[in-house]
């Protein structure tokens, strides 16, 4: 797999809440790059800074130190409105509890953020149907969320996150509410969408889902304590497949 341009760059990012003796360092000195075609997982115990990292990456929060660059634009220099616009154009979110609007159909849910961004209704619907097709649930386009299974809802959420020109998906425990087989299917979809030209940052506490990422970084007390590094190429993997046993 060849990686594309950097979509998200965190350089020396820190986030402190409060001041002086009361200061809490939610995140310290984090460097991270996510490129097109790349899925990066973040693991760590609760309170380790995973959510702070995701909020900073999506421009929902601004760092105390360091810089966050989203789709080539540095977030720090922007006002709240500019950040909101950048977010709508560049970033999509996937949450554990799906966050679909119950009164809207699947297609309307996917089209909504695009319409908010000024895209004409008809064009937004076309984009939505394309996005739903890409995640394999085109047939449920006109159904409401409560008529969908958990796996289908999460696919719709992934479609919404990557509808139109958006290329960065931030996923917060996207498999948390799903059973193990459905969770795996959702990860497959997320992986496929990233491989097709998106970038993803995935927060999870489940190693089995983090394993779908190209690399995993481990956070602890706001600091990156380790990373798996990049995955080996397929040739290397297949060469190794005959010795995957533990050899006791």
């Amino acid at each position: 797999m060849s990686l594309g341009p950097v979509l998200l760059r965190l350089a020396g990012v820190g986030r402190t809440h409060g001041e002086g003796d009361l200061a809490v360092h939610a995140l310290r000195d984090v460097d991270l790059e996510v490129r097109v075609g790349e899925l990066v997982a973040v693991m760590g115990p609760s309170g380790s800074g995973k959510s702070t990292l995701l909020n900073l990456a999506g421009g929902l929060d601004t760092p105390t130190t360091g810089t966050v660059t989203l789709a080539g634009t540095e977030v720090a220099g922007m006002d709240a409105r500019g950040r909101a616009r950048l977010r709508r154009r560049s970033v999509g979110y996937v949450f554990q509890d799906f966050n679909l609007v119950p009164a809207l159909t699947a297609a309307e849910n996917v089209a909504l953020p695009r319409e908010l961004d000024g895209v004409a209704a008809r064009a937004a619907r076309t984009e939505a149907l394309d996005a739903l097709t890409a995640v394999g649930v085109a047939e449920v386009a006109d159904r409401f969320p409560d008529e969908l299974s958990g796996g289908q809802r999460q696919r719709v959420a992934i479609a919404r996150a990557l509808a139109g020109p958006r290329r960065l998906v931030l996923a917060d425990e996207p498999t948390g509410a799903l059973d193990s087989v459905t969770g795996e299917e959702v990860m497959q979809v997320l992986r496929a969408r990233v491989d097709a030209g998106a970038a993803g940052l995935l927060v999870t506490h489940e190693a089995r889902f983090a394993a779908w990422a190209d690399r995993t970084i481990f956070l602890r007390d706001g600091v990156v304590v380790d990373t798996t590094g990049f995955a080996p190429g397929p040739d290397e993997l297949l060469a190794g497949s005959t010795r995957t046993g533990r050899g006791r």
Binding site: A210, A213, T216
Partner: peptide
């Protein structure tokens, strides 16, 4: 980290 690496490799296979 090491176990997650092999987990990733199995997942890719």
């Amino acid at each position: 980290t090491e176990t997650l690496r092999s987990l990733r490799d199995y997942t890719r296979l």
